[in-house]
Design a protein around this nucleic acid. Structure first.
Lengths: 335, 335
DNA sequence: CGTCTTATTGCAAACGTGTGCAGGGAGCGG
DNA sequence: CCGCTCCCTGCACACGTTTGCAATAAGACG
């Protein structure tokens, strides 16, 4: 591995001069700078980021902790993060927590030892962890769609209540009165908030709230399927279902088909997220579009801002958008 | 940021002793070791990986370059990588190339500057780049499903010809004779190989090869949709279609539905990859299962082996597996 | 009690880079 | 020709670890 000193030797200058030359410092004459850069190029010199980090005390890296990178929602967010990180010459460490709190702590500690300049957390189910962790290590951190109730210093979140209200109102507008809700597990912030938006929409429209129309999945297709099966087994099944997310809706669709019903003729379905696949289910899914990539970008931009000294508490709330596709229609007329 | 010297000061020992104590070196007495560790714990000391890397000349990091992390196939592979990396206390840098060759080179150079211990590349479309790059920087590198023809030092690949032959034979076995192939873009290794397997299956079964039944997408749903539209517009459309991958198949299914045909009654469809969504399309997709996560694990395990001194050229070829679901059936009887 | 061994500790150098400061040389003005 | 300024360069230290080697103290043994 060739170093700055090797170059210094052949250029017959001190290593400091080489260092300066490679940074285009005005402190070194044009001629020697050129000569040094030429030599560096010939030797295929690559500066050691680790040595540099040691002295500059900035690593130009950030850590991203996610529950599962294979989750399409998260992958999309990470794409956004990576884009702007890259634009600013930051490298990103990626780590899965698999939703294990202790694993999540371990990951953050490892990031800390690596001296990352900042940390981004997507959809953590244990956001509360970060308060003490943060106090301990003072690394700029921003949470994206934190699932734990409570505010954090920096965050970007989707406006869940507004979005889910919009989704529910869409169904009400179509004439539905028996609208079910398939949620995630209890206690997660987004589930609580989306449920709240759903209730609010019913309330405003004077549609009675029926507890038997509430089912809980697990945020994945599997859970959505089981939840939908329960709803379909009701004496009087709903005419429309608002699902916590597209994955649940996907499972829901599958259960409906298995049940021999058709969407949207027999039952309407609305999802949440607007994952890529929402366009390719059959029928294509009506859903709330969440600007996933954009949210990743915003979070990273907050970090960049923090790096450059600004230190304002920023909590961004982005709006979802209803995307009407083929999975919703007016309810069957009652005979 | 608290360092080893700070601890040394309060423990009234030299910083070398602290270093040894924290590594549980037998060179330090049990008592002082305990005392030092206690102090370190109290102060919330975290060793600096960057300083350590500088002297040990190993960073315990690897770089993973992917085309798009949002691609579900790739995300799954990365999951596997991350699992075993984590088991061995390696952190992973992730970078998207967006399939831009120059971007890919830049990424690898940045990894090099970060002094990663190894590099993993998933589905690169420019595998050839790595030969000179590798010579230049001597970092253990393994390619996963390299899309560029030619062997590489270390690789893990799916056995494309065998798998696609299996898929095609499944269709032939059902009685199909007009079997179309929807490929990726020309020149990519997996497309070429899968196409070869398809032809071989036809040949062995004495089914005539019909050039008009070959269409090319782009590996994504969009391209698969257009390709399928072309096939459906044929005077005599195929009775079955083997798609390069599940994404193409997804687009294909959409085109078929839009055309008013039913799967598998009017036309059978087979995909490749067995992405998560393959189970949730309607009908559920018959496809070739690729052990994505496992492939990621294997690649990382090769790296680990290389790190520990072993230096055998390893080219692993894994087998795909046909997963029969609902999208394939015998052809309609001709009247 | 002297010497040799062993257990424990500290010293100092090294990893590769950045940077404040001092020093040397050239140019310029007087 | 002298002195000042300015430009360029090198020296030396720092960043936070690891580690070979020397040093010291204690213990063992004769």
């Amino acid at each position: 591995m060739i170093s700055i000193k090797d170059i210094a030797r052949v250029a017959k200058v001190s290593h400091s001069t080489v260092s300066r030359a490679l940074q285009n410092s005005p402190l070194v004459s044009h001629d020697t700078a050129e000569r040094i850069q030429q030599i560096a190029r010939e030797k295929g010199y690559r500066p050691s980021a680790v040595a540099r980090s040691l002295v500059t005390r900035r690593t130009k890296t950030i850590g991203v902790v996610v529950t599962r990178i294979a989750d399409p929602f998260i992958a999309e967010v990470v794409s956004g993060i990576e884009e702007v990180a890259n634009d600013h010459d930051y490298s990103v460490f990626l780590a899965n927590s698999n939703a294990h709190p202790d694993r999540e702590v371990k990951v953050v500690h490892s990031f800390h030892e690596r001296r990352v300049d900042g940390i981004l957390v997507t959809a953590s189910r244990v956001g509360a962890l970060y308060m003490p962790l943060l106090a301990e290590m003072r690394v700029p951190t921003v949470l994206i769609n934190n699932q734990h109730p409570g505010e954090f210093v920096h965050s970007v979140m989707i406006d869940n209540p507004a979005a889910s209200r919009q989704a529910t109102e869409h169904l009400i507008g179509l004439g539905h009165r028996r609208i079910a809700y398939i949620g995630d597990q209890f206690g997660f912030q987004s589930d609580t908030e989306r449920f709240a938006g759903y209730r609010r929409a019913l309330e405003v429209a004077d549609v009675p709230f029926l507890p038997e129309l509430i089912a809980h999945g697990d945020g994945n297709a599997e859970g959505g399927m089981h939840a939908m099966e329960k709803l379909l087994a009701l004496a009087e099944p709903p005419t429309a279902v608002f699902c916590y997310n597209d994955m649940s809706a996907l499972g829901g669709l599958r259960a409906i088909h298995a049940h021999g019903w058709r969407v949207p003729e027999d039952i309407s379905v609305v999802g949440f997220d607007d994952l890529f696949i929402a366009s390719y289910t059959s029928p294509a899914l009506t859903t709330i579009s969440q600007p996933m990539r954009q949210m990743g970008r915003m979070a990273m931009e907050i970090l960049i801002k923090l790096f450059s000294g600004l230190n304002s508490k920023t909590n961004i709330k982005v709006q979802g958008q209803l995307i009407t596709r083929e999975s919703t229609a007016p309810p069957r007329p009652v005979h």
